[in-house]
Design a protein around this nucleic acid. Structure first.
Lengths: 190, 190
DNA sequence: CGCGACGTTGATTTGCCTCAACGATTGTGG
DNA sequence: CCACAATCGTTGAGGCAAATCAACGTCGCG
């Protein structure tokens, strides 16, 4: 039983003690070292992951060969690649640990059993999905509306914890700019 | 009973005839004229909408005063503004009919009753949410990876039906460019 | 008819990229 | 423990994609 997860769940649905235990009995603890991959392009994603502790990046390689970071996964977030998971098709996405990371894995067959057994779990994952979507839509609005410098300033003020944990070139990629330009923004030369 | 909706539902969940009828009894038919608003910034979004026939645009006004189109809603799509609906907060989004449009409205209190009564409905909306998210993530990848001209070409080949129905300046906005630049791409002068 | 909405075209500007060179730091094998 | 490479960040010069601004053409409609 993981307490982080239990209190996470409480925020969204009411589970009895038995249901909570039953839920968590389907989860498998996974440990990744910095640099390890949870998913590589070409593979089919088979699970949803709850990050207990650590940090992941979700990225793809675009047609020009650049790594584009879409998303970070930190402590107490669920992360997965939905297009591959839902449609059972090869991923174009990589998910990689950028710190030593501890995860709980809920694979798709367990997920399906679980939602039949405890229908409330559907509600949980609907809510997670909604929150994920809202965040993604807000990010899109930011990218469309703000200059590089504005994006940087907003990111820094809203996510100070990242700066300590994530190398600059990854933040640059997440913000949709080159590391060089990111550096120039930081040094105020732009 | 709406047949478009019935066959839409069949694609995602198994409902008995009674459940289908019960579901649809919660829906309210709404008709909008071209130009009418389903939601305006500052209001709280209270429902999910199924577009039976017509076309909507979902957009916001950015800090420079430009309309930025995030999404179109066409026949047989669900549309809503999740951030406002889920978090019950004032929307920064407008949803407007760009053709005369016929909708089915599922308001949030009905939605909540419905999911209690027929838990499978949670699955339905989880799936809709997943599909919406996947589309949004793919769009983000496109915007980050491709030039204006490439975006235009992909859009045209994947959505030829839009060109007949939607004015150019809206497509330009959806693709994240100015109408002037869009026009230059079309005339091949860029 | 005349006005407003929409689209086009050209001149100019600009935000960001590319490329290249060069520090600083980390880690690794001899 | 040092040498060396790899990784990461910085800085500058030059270039390009797309925005801005402005003028003008066209169409549909009150």
């Amino acid at each position: 039983m993981n307490d982080n997860l239990s209190s996470y769940l409480k925020r969204y649905i009411d589970l009895t003690e038995q249901e909570n235990e039953r839920f968590q009995s389907f989860l498998k603890k996974t440990v990744l070292n910095k640099g390890d991959f949870l998913l590589k392009a070409g593979r089919i994603c088979t699970a949803r992951y709850f990050v207990v502790k650590g940090c992941l990046r979700l990225y793809y390689i675009d047609s020009k060969g650049n790594e584009q970071i879409i998303h970070f996964g930190l402590d107490n977030w669920w992360i997965t690649e939905y297009d591959s998971l839902i449609n059972q098709k090869p991923s174009n996405i990589y998910i990689q640990a950028i710190e030593n990371t501890e995860l709980l894995t809920l694979n798709q067959t367990s997920f399906e059993k679980l939602t039949l057994e405890i229908p409330k779990i559907n509600t949980l994952f609907r809510i997670i999905m909604e929150k994920t979507f809202i965040a993604s839509q807000r990010r899109m609005e930011y990218m469309l509306s703000y200059s590089g410098k504005e994006l940087y300033q907003k990111f820094v003020s809203q996510n100070p914890q990242f700066l300590q944990r994530v190398p600059q070139y990854m933040i640059a990629s997440y913000l949709g700019m080159t590391p060089e330009f990111y550096s120039k923004i930081r040094s105020n030369s732009v």
